[in-house]
């Protein structure tokens, strides 16, 4: 009797072991199959990703609340500790900014006067929304952020994300309430830029490190550390002349890298802009009749 029972026990155990190994093998194969499928046809996956983002966003927001409290306390502590030194620095900076403000005002007036003289058709970037960052990617594969504005707020893939210092990236997927922004540092990010003052076009390519690279620079182009990098409207993705960053010191033989203007590691809010490339000037049929046009004052 006991022998029979132990035999059944052993049989059950080996069956269970077989079942466990079988489900392990099936899961492993299924995971690899899903990976290959996602590489072959990424479209359904992107939709699924957007849906998951929409569901996870409020949960991440709640998880973030206690984290924010701790961060606030630490940041407050840091602020208090450096109050005196910071005050001196700010006063100094304020002085310099006042001078810059005067210069900027003068240049802005001059710029608009010259533009109206030359009849320049400006390429407009329309502000769509300002959104809060509610999530970020972890690990080394991707550099993306999740923001709390989506289709309902008019956000669409291709919209430009920027903060007050410069461009951050562009929207890749949207759900009704969230959008995911591919940062300039991501492996898959390639944007057309211009290096000033040399006025050289290049492609800013991310490789998941903090400073993206400048690639496709024309041979012999004269660029130096500290040069400004701004967007160009080539390809019709970005509005022209938005600050991206400055050329960083390049080690000998290496590709020049760009120190981004905005600090991607401590983002809080982003602005979303829609860019419509320049529309051709209105044709004769569309221009208002001469009688309605404002008459030049005598």
């Amino acid at each position: 009797m006991r022998v029979a029972r132990s035999r059944t026990g052993r049989l059950a155990r080996s069956l269970r072991g077989f079942g466990a190994r079988f489900s392990l093998a099936i899961s492993a194969i299924l995971a690899l199959a899903l990976f290959i499928f996602s590489q072959v046809s990424p479209a359904p996956l992107e939709r699924l990703r957007a849906a998951v983002d929409g569901v996870l966003a409020p949960i991440i927001y709640v998880v973030n609340l206690p984290v924010r409290v701790v961060e606030d306390v630490v940041i407050w502590g840091q602020d208090v500790a450096f109050l005196y030194r910071e005050n001196i620095r700010l006063r100094d900076e304020n002085q310099r900014l006042m001078e810059w403000q005067l210069a900027a005002q003068r240049l802005a007036t001059e710029n608009s006067r010259l533009k109206s003289l030359l009849d320049v058709h400006d390429m407009q970037a329309t502000p769509i929304a300002t959104a809060r960052i509610i999530g970020q990617s972890a690990g080394n594969y991707v550099r993306t952020i999740l923001i709390n504005a989506g289709q309902n707020a008019g956000v669409a893939p291709g919209h430009v994300a920027a903060d007050r210092s410069g461009v951050l990236g562009r929207v890749i997927t949207v759900s009704p309430t969230t959008a995911r922004v591919l940062l300039l540092t991501d492996l898959n990010s390639r944007i057309p830029v211009k290096v000033l003052p040399a006025d050289v076009n290049a492609i800013l390519a991310g490789d998941n490190l903090d400073q993206p690279m400048l690639t496709f620079l024309p041979a012999g182009s004269q660029i130096a550390a500290g040069d400004w990098v701004v967007t160009t409207s080539h390809g019709g993705i970005f509005p022209p002349d938005m600050p991206v960053g400055r050329v960083a010191l390049t080690p000998k033989g290496g590709k020049p890298r760009v120190m981004l203007s905005s600090d991607l590691t401590r983002l809080d809010y982003v602005r979303l802009l829609a860019f419509t490339p320049a529309t051709p000037p209105p044709t004769a049929a569309e221009t208002p009749p001469a009688a309605e046009a404002p008459q030049p004052s005598p």
Binding site: V63, A138, L267, D268
Partner: peptide, 15 residues
Amino acid sequence: MLLEFVPYRFAHIQA
């Protein structure tokens, strides 16, 4: 897992 996806405001923690 969700704690990994929370946006932290301290420099370089993401990487």
